[in-house]
């Protein structure tokens, strides 16, 4: 169980860490100042969640590592985030589409985790849920606005959806570890979250006048750590650089 729990916590913390990192790349470059501020807010929320998830992961592991060690000193194959969140930002539409797909999954997950049998997990979920309810409301409204907006914004949002849709499926991938945690009442099966996700996605993307691709194909390899995309290595090269270049220094 310990290994499964550790793996589960890494999956949570790595998703929020890597997505936060990607969003933070927008800082100073967003289409309007209000969006710049809002994106920074979301990046900050996700970073705070990362500190909680990876903090607990480190505690559960009991090997003397800290949340920072887990973030800064693991190599790509030890990361357990879904490939969706490591994908490059693309244009603002792609960033917001990725955000909406992740938020729509995230809010379903947290809604279930608040009643986890593990109180520490329930507490983190409760704190995160308040933030993520706002995230999904916001990303949904932007996806709707831009999908419904001008001819160009509509075309860009449809392209973003076509591009990202096959990366959303991995969020619901379910393995033996998930079953073990589900049996212990700690976490839901990711596959159980799909229906809620689909309902929200169908409603929002419908309001956005966008068409969900028909394919049922889903990329995978991130949450198992088996095969991340090439992008993760470059992201880590930046994120971990100071810690790698000056081992043992305190900052």
């Amino acid at each position: 169980m310990g290994d499964h729990l550790f793996e589960f916590l890494l999956r949570q913390g790595d998703n929020t860490l890597i997505l936060s990192h990607r969003i933070s790349e927008w800082c100073g470059h967003a289409p309007i100042i209000e969006e710049d501020i809002a994106l920074a807010n979301i990046a900050l929320d996700l970073l705070g969640q990362t500190q909680m998830w990876l903090g607990l992961a480190a505690e559960v592991e009991g090997a003397g590592r800290s949340a920072d060690d887990l973030a800064m000193l693991r190599d790509a194959w030890d990361f357990r985030n879904s490939i969706l969140v490591e994908r490059p930002n693309g244009d603002f539409g792609q960033t917001m589409m990725r955000q909406f797909l992740f938020d729509a999954y995230h809010v379903e997950l947290l809604n279930r985790l608040v009643s986890s049998a593990d109180e520490r997990i329930a507490a983190i979920a409760a704190k995160s849920l308040k933030e993520v309810e706002y995230h999904v409301e916001r990303s949904a409204s932007i996806v709707i606005a831009l999908g419904d907006g001008s001819e160009e914004s509509h075309a860009r949002m449809q392209a973003a959806l076509d591009d990202q849709w096959t990366f959303a499926g991995e969020l619901f991938e379910t393995d033996a570890g998930d079953h073990a945690l589900n049996d212990a009442g700690i976490a839901p099966l990711p596959s159980e979250l799909r229906a809620g996700f689909n309902a929200r996605a169908t409603a929002v993307l419908g309001d956005a006048t966008l068409i969900i691709p028909e394919t049922t194909f889903a990329h995978s390899g991130g949450r198992s750590g088996k095969r991340h995309s090439e992008h993760l290595g470059h992201l880590l090269t930046q994120m971990q650089w100071l810690q790698r270049a000056y081992p043992g220094a305190t900052w």
């Binding site: 967003a30 244009d91 606005a145 831009l146 419904d148 001008s150 914004s153 860009r156």
Partner: peptide
């Protein structure tokens, strides 16, 4: 670049 790249976003929001 931020301003030019964001033009379609601002236009899209206005259109909506």
């Amino acid at each position: 670049k931020a301003w030019d790249d964001g033009q379609w976003v601002r236009d899209g929001m206005m259109a909506h």
